[in-house]
Amino acid sequence: MDKPQQQLDKRQVRIAFNRAADSYDGVAVLQREVGERLLERLELIRLEPQWALDLGAGTGQITRGLLKRYRGSRVVALDLAEAMLTHTRRSAGWWRRPRLVCADAEQLPLADASVDLLVSNLTLQWCNSLEQTFAEFRRVLRPGGALFFTTFGPDTLRELRESWAEVDGHSHTNRFIDLHDIGDALVRAGLAEPVMDMEMLTLTYRELPTLVREIKELGAHNVTRGRARSLTGRARWRAFEQAYESRRRDGVLPLSYEVIYGHAWAPTGVRQQRSGDEVRVPLDMLKGR
C-alpha cells in the first residue's frame, strides 16, 4: 500500500488536466507515440466489440483510433477531466460521435458486463488503488472481453526524481508501479491470461526550464499528497538545476520513461453481483453527444 504522502490528490489531478487540456497536444509527443503502439497491439486479437471503452481518453487519440478501427462499434470516451473530453468531442469528427463520460477510473459509473473492449493509455499511474481499478475493469468487461493498457513503471522520470532527492526530502514526482506488481494485481482481480512487457523511452532537452514546462503543460506535474506546498525558492531551484545538469550527456538533458504494456481477458463464466447503493448506468442509455 502506498504511503499517505504518495497518494494522489484526485481533486488536484482533475484540476491539473483541466488546465492542461489546451496545451496537451502541443507537447504530448511521447504520449502519442505510446498510444499508436497501443493501437497497433489491437491487431493481435480478433474482436468486433459492440461497446469499446477508451478509459482516460485525454484529448481523444485512442477514441479516434477505436472509431476508425471498429466502425460498427459504439465507443465511449471516459476521463476525469471534463476539459479533456471537450477536446475529444471536437476532434472525433462530425460523422461519428463517441459517448462521453466524466468519471474516475476507480469508480466507473457503468453497468456490470457492459463493455467488450477496454483500452487505457497512460492512465493507471493516476489511480491510487490498482486493486480497485482492476476490479472495476473486471466488473464492466463482458465475459471474453479484452483489456489493453499502457502505464509508466518505476524508472519513469528517474533523473527528475533523483535530482530533487539531492535537494530536499519532499515528493516531487508521482509514484509508479512495477511491472510484476501490475501483473499480480491483474491476476488477483480475476482477469485471465495477462501478458506484460516493457520498453524504455528517453526524451532529451537542451534546457531544463523547457523540460519542466512541458511536464506542466502535460498536466503531469506532481500531485501527491506529500508534495511541497510552498513555492520553490531560488536557492533550492539552483541546487536542483546543478543536480540535473550533472546528468547532461552529449549536450542534452535526458528524461526517462519506463513504458509498460499489458493485456488480459475477462474470463468466461458466472460473474459476481455487486450490492450497495451505487448507480450503474447501462451503456445503451448514453447519448452520442
Rank of each mutant, 00 (worst) to 15 (best):
residue 265 W to K: 06
residue 145 G to R: 02
residue 167 V to M: 08
residue 280 R to I: 00
residue 107 Q to M: 10
residue 180 H to P: 00
residue 73 S to T: 13
residue 137 F to V: 11
residue 199 E to D: 12
residue 243 A to V: 12
residue 256 S to F: 11
residue 285 M to N: 00
residue 17 F to N: 02
residue 19 R to L: 05
residue 174 N to S: 07
residue 279 V to W: 05
residue 143 P to N: 10
residue 242 Q to W: 11
residue 210 T to W: 06
residue 237 W to T: 04
residue 162 E to D: 13
residue 108 L to I: 03
residue 156 T to E: 04
residue 153 G to K: 11
residue 34 V to L: 11
residue 221 H to D: 15
residue 92 A to W: 06
residue 44 L to F: 06
residue 252 V to A: 10
residue 167 V to N: 06
residue 75 V to S: 01
residue 90 R to V: 05
residue 5 Q to N: 12
residue 29 V to Q: 12
residue 113 A to Y: 00
residue 105 A to S: 09
residue 117 L to K: 05
residue 161 R to Y: 11
residue 145 G to Y: 02
residue 231 L to H: 14
residue 223 V to S: 09
residue 272 Q to A: 13
residue 15 I to M: 14
residue 284 D to V: 07
residue 284 D to I: 02
residue 158 R to G: 04
residue 36 E to L: 08
residue 168 D to C: 06
residue 265 W to S: 08
residue 225 R to H: 11
residue 187 V to I: 15
residue 159 E to D: 11
residue 80 L to Y: 05
residue 67 L to W: 04
residue 176 F to K: 09
residue 192 A to N: 02
residue 87 H to P: 02
residue 181 D to Y: 04
residue 164 W to S: 03
residue 84 M to R: 04
residue 65 G to W: 04
residue 207 E to A: 11
residue 69 R to N: 15
residue 70 Y to Q: 08
residue 28 A to G: 13
residue 175 R to P: 13
residue 225 R to K: 14
residue 177 I to N: 07
residue 94 W to P: 03
residue 86 T to W: 04
residue 106 E to R: 05
residue 112 D to P: 02
residue 57 A to E: 00
residue 129 S to K: 06
residue 184 D to N: 03
residue 263 H to T: 03
residue 200 M to I: 12
residue 83 A to R: 10
residue 220 A to W: 01
residue 255 L to F: 03
